[in-house]
């Protein structure tokens, strides 16, 4: 187990270096931040001097190495567009993104599994058909359209929910939480649904398909023959056995949730890391883009690792084969 972990950490460092290098090559095509930083009055000499001071005249490799050296010390420099330390900015914005991802993951999992089981068990009821039809919207409409649609229905039309922002937040240590105030909960509903709808649909369809599969197996028939209650069969035996693929997908989808949150955050002006990244791209704010891409890569690598470890926890067969492997080695 330990050597497995060490191995994975080395792999992760390799992935991160490649991501950082690729980002720096891409940054050269994003454009020049200088024009966004100075007014039209600035002379060409002033511009050139600022470019020199920011180190933008150095070669990609030199810029990359400097970035890696600083990043290793946790330093990402000063943002060009906010004139603040990037590490502070990201730490401040992280709670917003993580809370949004958390709430939408909970919605996606709870509603996805619940509806999945329901549509799996009552295949032919009109409600199941209705749910399945509506869920098609979740996969076929792009996130920003769903977001704008929800805003126009629930904010502009009905005036029930806010159209942007996080509402009031409460500060606990370094964590700025919106989940402890009424306005915070009202504000998170629309973005969380927008962000989680795609995942909800995926999980719903996956659970339904797995349920249909499992319900046909011999051990379920045998359980029925033993006279177990429906409840014990459906949830104790059938549902539990559908969970391995669901965990895989849900885990990987959390990575995508963080990535997709860029769009949702932009639509709802949700002050998280994704919005910060978009603001950075628009401005060609290299320090922010570099730090964000690196963090996103770290998040993906970490989630994949956790998913691998969870398999072992859920599926005893994997544990046994790992031990057996150790024995023979």
């Amino acid at each position: 187990m330990f050597s497995y972990l060490v191995n994975r950490v080395f792999q992760a460092v390799g992935v991160l270096l490649v991501v950082a290098l690729l980002s720096f090559v891409i940054f050269n095509y994003v454009g020049d931040p200088i024009n966004n930083m100075v007014g039209q009055e600035a002379t060409l000499e002033d511009r050139e001097e600022l470019r020199e001071r920011l180190g933008l005249n150095d070669s990609v490799l030199v810029q990359f190495l400097r970035f890696v050296a600083n990043a290793a010390e946790g330093e990402f420099g000063i943002s060009y567009q906010f004139q603040r330390k990037v590490s502070d900015l990201i730490l401040e914005r992280m709670p917003a993104t993580l809370e949004l991802v958390f709430v939408s993951a909970v919605i996606a999992l709870a509603a996805g599994i619940g509806l999945g089981v329901f549509t799996g068990l009552r295949r032919d009821s009109w409600l199941s058909r209705f749910v399945l039809t509506v869920s098609l919207v979740g996969v076929s409409l792009p996130t920003f359209v769903i977001g704008i649609l929800l805003i126009y229905i629930f904010s502009v039309g009905l005036e029930w929910l806010p159209s942007f922002g996080r509402g009031d937040t409460v500060r606990i240590g370094d964590w700025d939480s919106g989940l402890l105030t009424g306005s915070g909960w009202l504000a998170i509903i629309l973005p969380a649904i927008t962000l989680g709808l795609f995942q909800l649909t995926i999980i719903l369809r996956l659970v339904r398909a797995e349920m249909l599969e499992v319900l046909r197996t011999d051990y379920i028939k045998f359980a029925r023959a033993r006279g177990l209650s429906r409840r014990a069969i459906n949830f104790g035996h059938a549902l539990k056995n559908t969970m391995v693929p669901v965990i895989t997908i849900a885990g990987l989808q959390i990575g995508t949730l963080i990535a997709f949150s860029i769009i949702t955050e932009t639509v709802f002006q949700w002050p998280g890391m994704g919005l910060l990244f978009i603001q950075g791209v628009e401005f060609a704010d290299v320090p922010i883009m570099g730090a964000y891409l690196l963090l996103a890569a770290i998040a993906f690598v970490a989630i994949n690792l956790i998913v691998d470890l969870l398999y072992a926890a859920v599926d005893p067969r994997l544990r046994v084969s790992a031990q057996r492997g150790k024995g023979t080695a």
Partner: peptide, 11 residues
């Protein structure tokens, strides 16, 4: 509040 997305701003 800066609101980047034009449709959200109008909403």
């Amino acid at each position: 509040t800066p609101i980047k997305n034009a449709a959200t701003r109008v909403a």
